[in-house]
């Protein structure tokens, strides 16, 4: 086991993988959206997934907590294989937090209730304890003063930070981010990215689907480039951004850079 420069972070090479995707395939009807995906994410590793739209990156991370079902191959999360067994699915979902592009906060519940719902009903935590926990995480994402408000009263950036706090209240071992900044105005992207950087510093295992290359350079241990349902290239950020091997990655990078 050779220590690469990217392993200087929280990644422990000898630890069992937090997430293992083994030859995962998925079809929508006749459309082959995931082709033989192999991905091995170590505990504490931060992986950024990028690629053009329609490349299957969102579908892949949605398979990890079974919001989508794969049809072939194996997905093992935290030592448990994803099957049709609802018990293992419940156990996995308790350990995997997810943040969506469109926030998906519950509009009829206050910010505090959004955060305490799952700890109370899934973790069976006393309400007082759950509220203290929620206030702790809301402080960490720097919006404790909004606890009594409803999601509709918050800006997009604030809503997304609440969504992160809501997921963290379940004390997950793994966090999935599905384009968390794509629906935000430019001035709000930074506050959400700052929150994610802060989370990365705590040693959380993270998979982020994002086009924010600055974020990828700053926190990613590894960048995975997907195109047309395949993992085309993967490596440390420097290698991916400065020394792309394939034409597809080169083309993608030139498009992204033109946009910035």
């Amino acid at each position: 086991m050779e220590d690469g420069p990217h392993l200087a972070s929280a990644v422990r090479a000898d630890a069992p993988p937090a997430i293992l995707l083994d030859k995962v395939n998925k079809w929508y009807g006749a459309l082959h959206v995931l082709r033989d995906i192999n991905l091995n994410v170590a505990t504490g590793e931060r992986v950024v997934v990028c690629g053009p739209s329609g490349s299957g990156k969102s579908t892949m991370i949605r398979c990890i907590n079974r919001l989508e079902q794969h049809q072939e191959g194996r997905i093992v999360v935290d030592g448990m294989e994803l099957t049709d067994d609802t018990r293992s699915l419940d156990a996995i979902r308790r350990e995997v937090g997810m943040v969506f592009q469109s926030f998906n906060l519950f509009p009829h519940l206050t910010i505090l209730e959004n955060c305490t719902l799952a700890p109370i009903w899934v973790r069976r935590m006393p309400k007082k304890e759950a509220e203290a926990l929620a206030m702790d995480y809301l402080s960490r994402v720097k919006i404790p003063e909004q606890a009594k408000k409803y999601p509709g009263q918050l800006s997009g950036g604030q809503q997304q930070r609440v969504a992160i706090a809501r997921a963290l209240c379940m004390k997950p071992k793994i966090m999935l981010f599905d384009e968390p900044t794509s629906a935000l105005d430019p001035e709000m992207i930074k506050e959400v990215l700052d929150t994610m950087v802060m989370l990365a510093d705590t040693g959380m295992t993270m998979i982020c689907v994002t086009h924010e290359m600055g974020f990828a350079r700053q926190v990613a241990d590894r960048v995975v480039f997907m195109d047309r349902g395949e993992v085309v290239e993967s490596g440390i950020p420097d290698q991916i951004f400065n020394d792309p091997k394939t034409d597809r990655l080169k083309g993608f990078l030139s498009q992204i850079l033109r946009g910035h």
């Binding site: 907590n65 997810m98 969506f100 998906n104 379940m170």
Partner: peptide, 18 residues
């Protein structure tokens, strides 16, 4: 009720009835 509401709740580990 938006599909995202189901997904967010499922991702938090809540059961269907709940």
């Amino acid at each position: 009720v938006a599909k995202g509401q189901w997904e967010a709740a499922e991702a938090l580990g809540l059961q269907r009835g709940l």
